[in-house]
Amino acid sequence: MTILKVDSVSAGYVPESNILHDLSLELNEGEIVSVIGPNGAGKSTLLKTIFGLLKPKSGKIQLKNEVISGLKPFRIAQKGVSYVPQVNNVFPSLTIQENLEMGAFIRSDDYSDTMEEVYTLFPVLKERKNQKAGQLSGGQRQMVAMGRALMLKPEVLLLDEPSAGLAPIFVSSIFDKIKEINATGVSIIIVEQNAKEALKMSHRGYVLAMGQNVLDDKSDALLANEEVGRLYLGG
């Protein structure tokens, strides 16, 4: 079943020009979908638009059967979508624990169970829960950012380049965590520079260029596609 549907969306940062042109994407329940493409293709812009930080100028975005395009980010968050931005995705002067608490800001119920789940997923965060997020390594910061997003118990998780700037050993461990999160039933859209790795762990992939759909297919098919390999997967 389709959980999130981006339907011919055009969007941009200024009124005169669009970055996304008639872009479409579908995420099915339980899936990991990768979005790949060259720098400046509009991958981050796509996630921002889904999350309501940018308003589509045409087209619509649906979560299950409800149109969410035009809603404010916190409304979209309340409906079960969490977003981890590409950069500046933690509160540096807050402790790890406080970062997670902020993730649950709009929850009025008891979220201590969720916090335990996040700590179980990322044990290192529990060990350092009173340390400021700004003092952590890049990999741990990424874990805080994901943990923060998971505090809402989202159905859909939007990840913008979770492996950016990480040492190779951390890249694979972050990807393992993403698979674990997915296994708990969270549907995930992941934007990645590490396109090959991302495709390997995802069910399907979308290739974007200049704000437009170029290709979408099952991940295996994209990995096997020579042209995709040459243009987007670095050889």
Partner: peptide, 9 residues
Amino acid sequence: NTDLALVTG
């Protein structure tokens, strides 16, 4: 981080 605060709801 005001932007992230917004994203966090």
